[in-house]
Structure formats: C-alpha cells, structure tokens
C-alpha cells in the first residue's frame, strides 16, 4: 500500500481571541484516506491508484501534482461528489457524504465558475453558505448573530468594505476571498481550495498565502490546497502530498527534491540543481489542459525565481 502518514503537527499559531471569543468553534477533524482507487467510465487506467493518506486535525496540507494526476478526483471524493469505488475516506470519523450534509467541509472552487451575473451582494453570497439550510420562514436579516459572523468573516478575508457591492462588480481576487468567507460561514472545519492561485501573479500568490495563514491562525481549520503550482502549495502548508495517480510524497515543502519532482512530473531532473525550495516550477505537458487526459511521459519543466529574494539556480 502506498501509504503516507502525517506525523508533523500543525504550526503553533495561536488562535485569535476576536472570533473565538464571540463564536463557538468546533475542533477541526482529521481526514483518513485508506486504499482508494478510482477509474472513470470508459477510461483505460485508474485516475487514482491505491492512495492512502492521513491528515491530522488542523494541518494545512498542499496536494501537488500535474494536471491529469488525480488531484481533482481526490478532492471530489473527499467532498463526496464522486462515489467511492474502492477504499475508504473518513472525515472526523464519518464518510464524506455525511460530512458534506453536515456542512463540515467548506469548498472553494476555481474562481469565476459561479454565475457572477446573479444580482446578489458579496454579503448575500456568504450568507448563503451560512444559512441555506435555514427554514424558509426564518429570515436572515433579523439574525444579528449570523450577520455579525458574516461581517467578521468578510473582515477576516479582507473584503468587508465590499460587502454590499454586487458580487459581479468585484475583481477576481475579491470574489475568491468572498468564496473563502462563504466556505467558512457554515462553521466548516475543513477548508478545501481547488487550484486557488490559477492566474494570480507572484505577489498575489504571496498575499493569498498570507490570507490562509491568517485564517488558520484565527479559526484553525484543516486546510487542503490542491494545485499543480508548487508555490501555491508550498507557501503556508505544513506539508505537501505529491499526487500523480499514486501518492509519491507526503512531507514538508523543504523535502521537495529534484528527484521527487522528477518522479511526480514524469521527467528526469537529474541535471537540475538541488534546492528548489522557493522556486516557481511549471510543468508543461500535452495533457495539462485537461484533467481527463493521461499524463504525457515527456514533461518540460521551467524554473523561474518566485520572488526578488530568491536565488537563481546555479549553472
């Protein structure tokens, strides 16, 4: 069994008093994935093969892998959006479908998948996350506690000033922050983000990492960040799982070596320098544009400085 066990404890970030003082927060659940396989109808190969993983409560886990490597499939299985074919997933000891119904998981999709033409405000978007289950005869506008919680979340993600603006009038980054607030609004204790830094420049990625750090410090959820971008998962993660159909690595970002990345992106990196930490790595492959495509055996890697502070690779 290809099993990786997270032994590292989450970083000791002290929870802020401001939110926890006024709102009861349940402890975050751990996630246990045991021996899962998944194959799409008509596909010749498994999208996921014997993947096992244990995520401790409150850990920030980055799941890194090439497109077509099974990241989105794994996320959909964790969210209970795909039926489990083989193996087991438990979130806080309960199956994903039940966890989803209980609002245990807050999901942040790739931005701009929503119908931004719908005439609702940023606040209403967050309120939907918090109160869509509420009986129809119980209005939201009279619930001071709910409104205070929504305001606090909007403030936490930095869009409090835009709360009453139409969601369609906000920038892509602001929409993403609103969707993060929505994900947290149902008191979700697992925050799952799908490719959160697609199309965001280096400084924006750093701001995003800072935002996740602030959220983790305040609410202490278990956080899953799924991306093909090494910077997106390395910044602000306690550990990284590398997934290319099988699980290749499950350790801290510092442990990412050329050999591991070479295995992950199916390319021989023997000639590349050690110490890729802090570097931005792109994988270009024929299968990159479509998650359903198999990974091409030949992948070209481009490494570029991630920030002005980073040292360029030695010749």
């Amino acid at each position: 069994m290809n099993h990786a066990d997270a032994q590292v404890q989450p970083r000791p970030t002290g929870p802020s008093r401001s939110f926890q003082a006024s709102h009861a927060i349940d402890p975050p659940p751990g996630i246990t994935i045991t021996g899962i396989f998944h194959r799409y109808p008509g596909a010749e190969a498994d999208a996921l093969e014997d993947v096992s993983l244990r995520v401790e409560p409150g850990v920030r886990l980055g799941i890194l892998g090439p497109n077509g490597g099974g990241k989105s499939t794994l996320l959909k299985l964790i969210l209970g959006l795909l039926p489990l074919q083989r193996g087991e997933i438990l979130i806080g000891g309960i199956p994903p479908d039940q966890a989803r119904r209980q609002g245990l998981i807050g999901y942040v999709p790739q931005k701009l998948e929503a119908e931004l033409g719908l005439p609702i405000s940023a606040r209403q978007v967050v309120e939907l996350g918090a109160a869509w289950r509420r009986p129809p005869w119980r209005p939201i506008r009279h619930d001071a506690d709910l409104r205070a919680r929504v305001d606090r979340l909007l403030e936490l993600v930095g869009v409090r000033d835009y709360a009453d603006k139409p969601i369609g009038s906000l920038s892509g980054g602001q929409v993403q922050r609103v969707l993060i607030a929505r994900a947290l609004a149902s008191n979700a204790r697992v925050l799952a983000l799908d490719e959160p830094t697609v199309g965001i420049d280096a400084s924006g990625q750093q701001r995003f990492a800072d935002l996740l750090t602030a959220i983790h410090a305040e609410l202490r959820p278990t956080i899953l960040v799924i991306s093909h971008d090494i910077r997106a998962v390395a910044a602000g993660s306690d550990r990284v799982a590398c997934l290319a159909r099988k699980l290749h690595l499950h350790t801290s970002p510092e442990g990412l070596t050329p050999r591991v990345l070479g295995e992950l992106f199916a390319h021989d990196l023997a000639g590349l320098p050690a110490g890729l930490r802090g570097m931005h790595l792109h994988a270009h492959s024929a299968g990159e544009c479509c998650d359903d495509n198999p990974i091409e055996p030949r992948v070209d890697l481009t490494i570029s400085p991630a920030s002005p502070r980073t040292r360029p690779p030695a010749d």
Binding site: R100, E113, G129
Partner: peptide, 16 residues
C-alpha cells in the same frame, strides 16, 4: 435559499 445557491454556483452548492 438552496435554489439561489444552486443558481449562483451549482458545483459548489453540491459540495455544501
């Protein structure tokens, strides 16, 4: 409420 959520963002609504 569920209809508005569904109309706004169908995939996320399912995840919720």
């Amino acid at each position: 409420r569920p209809m508005l959520f569904h109309v706004f963002d169908e995939e996320s609504a399912r995840a919720f």
